[in-house]
């Protein structure tokens, strides 16, 4: 066991866990942040994606000992009021069916748009293909990402 001071959603949180513990379980079991989901545990489904310094990574493969001072953002901290352009676009397109994978999809989409504000369909496919949606909402996810890109680009132009 070791003590870690982690920067989660802008706040410092202290945990005392085994160094091998994946951030997925640190978030879910120790920090009461269950928005990050367990799907496969082997980085194949994307349900557990969080942002590490703004980039989406599978938290099931991210040992707490590797985080250091890097900022971790979870779905709970993506926006203060649940109004990140990607979250808004998800609601606009009423994407979710069961909803279980959507936090991971949203975190990945937000990371994509940060890196690539105007993704093509092929860009979206390539970036999102690590995220499985068992309900098959892929088309709506793609539409929502395009809407979010459009809104983000429009609002940045306005500024």
């Amino acid at each position: 066991m070791a003590i870690y001071n982690l920067k989660i959603n802008g706040k410092i949180k202290q945990v005392n866990v085994d160094p091998s513990t994946p951030m997925l379980w640190v978030l879910r079991d120790h920090l009461d942040l269950p928005g990050t989901k367990y799907g496969c545990g082997i980085a194949q489904c994307g349900a557990c994606k969080v942002h590490l310094n703004g980039v989406a990574v599978p938290s099931c493969q991210l040992p707490v000992s590797a985080v250091g001072k890097q900022a971790v953002t979870t779905i709970e901290g993506l926006s203060a009021k649940g109004d990140h352009p990607v979250q808004k676009a998800w609601l606009e397109h009423d994407v979710a069916q069961c909803g279980y994978c959507q936090a991971g999809q949203i975190m990945t989409a937000a990371s994509l748009l940060k890196e690539n504000p105007k993704p093509t369909d092929a860009d979206i496919d390539a970036y999102m293909s690590g995220n499985i949606c068992r309900c098959g909402t892929y088309l709506r996810i793609k539409e929502a990402i395009k809407s979010a890109a459009k809104e983000a680009n429009t609002s940045s132009t306005r500024k």
């Binding site: 928005g35 367990y38 979870t74 779905i75 649940g82 998800w90 909803g99």
Partner: peptide, 14 residues
């Protein structure tokens, strides 16, 4: 439940 889903509220059994 859309808003709860996109903000990661604890909706599921797990």
């Amino acid at each position: 439940e859309g808003q709860k889903i996109v903000t990661g509220k604890p909706l599921f059994g797990l």
